[in-house]
Amino acid sequence: MKQHKWGLILLGLAIFAIAVTFPFWYGKGKTAPPVLSLETPEIAGLADKKCVEDAVFMRANHMKMLQAWRDEAVREGKRVYTANDGRTFEKSLTGSCLQCHSNKEHFCDRCHHYVGAAPSCFDCHIVPAEVKK
């Protein structure tokens, strides 16, 4: 009876230890942190390599901006975005963003896959590479 009890307890502790140390033995970080590729023909051709807003803002807020653009353009018909520095852009994922960032796999997906974020942009929008094919 005593042996029986300790066997079960040690088995339980072993399962617990294996489960909570999971991140230490799974995968072991095979992939390095993502490096974004900005090398598309359109960006190379730009005189001033500048996104709609500055990079720090875009990194933190691009998802909110895209959501706001969608609502304003589709529901309110306001299709022109004026950036902080006065430049104007068409509020369009395909028409504005993807013109420069035409490399979804090396731009969007690298970070999104790394942090496990699954945006729903391309549930509706077409992937640029598919246009080219």
Binding site: F22, P23, Y26, G27, G29, K30, T31, H113, Y114, V115, G116
Partner: peptide, 8 residues
Amino acid sequence: LRFFTEPV
């Protein structure tokens, strides 16, 4: 776990 596994 998405922060602790790579690939996720």
